[in-house]
Amino acid sequence: MTDGALREPTFLVLTALAAGPRHGYGILLEVEQISAGRVRLRAGTLYTALDRLVADDWVAVDREEVVDGRLRRYYRLTDQGAARLATEVDRMRANTRAAETRLRARFAGGTA
């Protein structure tokens, strides 16, 4: 557990799992939707991130299914992962608030 900023793919994967368990392809779609199409994760990046997140106990395997003869594994956010995501959200919110305050002052002062 650390206070360092999360990389964007990690943040988006955790966010995708915050609402409930997702399988690999489901996470890719969810990340694309959350980022309004700006971030499109690929399988290599996703599974490298999942490998690290599972090792850190932020994400765990929820269940497995076989669909059309292929294994489909669902992942869920752990309590530890949820706490880490909440910390990151607080950090981003504080940064955003500070930026908003300064921008408002700048625009109010007519220096924009």
Binding site: H23, G24, Y25, R42, A43, G44, T45, R70, L71, R72
Partner: peptide, 20 residues
């Protein structure tokens, strides 16, 4: 096998190959 399933669902191109 799980990754293969995800790749088959997402119509991979050469960028996905490099990413792998």
């Amino acid at each position: 096998e799980e990754m293969l399933g995800v790749l088959l669902d997402s119509s991979p191109g050469w960028r996905d190959g490099l990413n792998l």
